[in-house]
Amino acid sequence: MSRGRALALMVMIASLITPLITPLPTHADPLPSGTGFLSEDLQARQADEAANPGMLWVDEGARLWQSPQGATGASCASCHGDATTSMRGIATRYPAVDATSGALLNLEDRINLCRTRHQKAEPYPYESDPLLGLTAYVARQSLGLPMDVETGGAAAPFYAAGEAFFHRRQGQLNLSCAQCHDDNAGRSLRGDTISHGLGNGYPAYRLEWQSLGSLQRRLRSCSFGVRAVQFDYGSPDYLALELYLAKRAQGVAIETPAIRR
């Protein structure tokens, strides 16, 4: 074999194996927020507090924060004081495991647990305006802070369950979450762009709903989309998935209340 042919063979072999040894993308860099898939007009509306319709719910949350509730007559502010300081960064750590009960709680559950445990009040129903308002108000205090949930220790089994859920094929369309939100994120699905499935903007104002809605409402829409079982609000399946999604969003800034299509 001539030197020229040997060189050509080596180049060919190298070009064949190069794709195999290229490192797989890691999630060391935060995934891109769904906001990047919005039109410029919608991005501007989301960023402008005077124009973002989700702020109407944040206003309601701010009012409820100061309002006495339940048998104790205590308001959120009675214990937690000024939310702009006491609630800063809280939403970045949810869902989280409650030390007392060992249960996984999202922000909505934590607010309702505070109502029943400390204020001696009735919990708000899921997707009610007061619960959406308080959740959005609390999450708003973490605006721009990176998501950073705990997935070890007591949270580990919940995280594992969420990860399994994300990769499990389900529904009549036999699709897993990963097949859209990992394999095809950024590509078009009919008239919309598939996001990476991060919950960093929730509760979010979805144009389809013409209302603010929780991440679990969004998950129910996803389940419906693949014609799978829609779990109840607060179900352990969705809670575990919320934890997994929050970990996927590690380092992504909170944008509540985001605008989503």
């Binding site: 702020m55 109407l56 206003d59 309601e60 009012r63």
Partner: peptide, 10 residues
Amino acid sequence: MALPPARVSM
């Protein structure tokens, strides 16, 4: 102390 469900900025 109910706020109106409206938001005006100017």
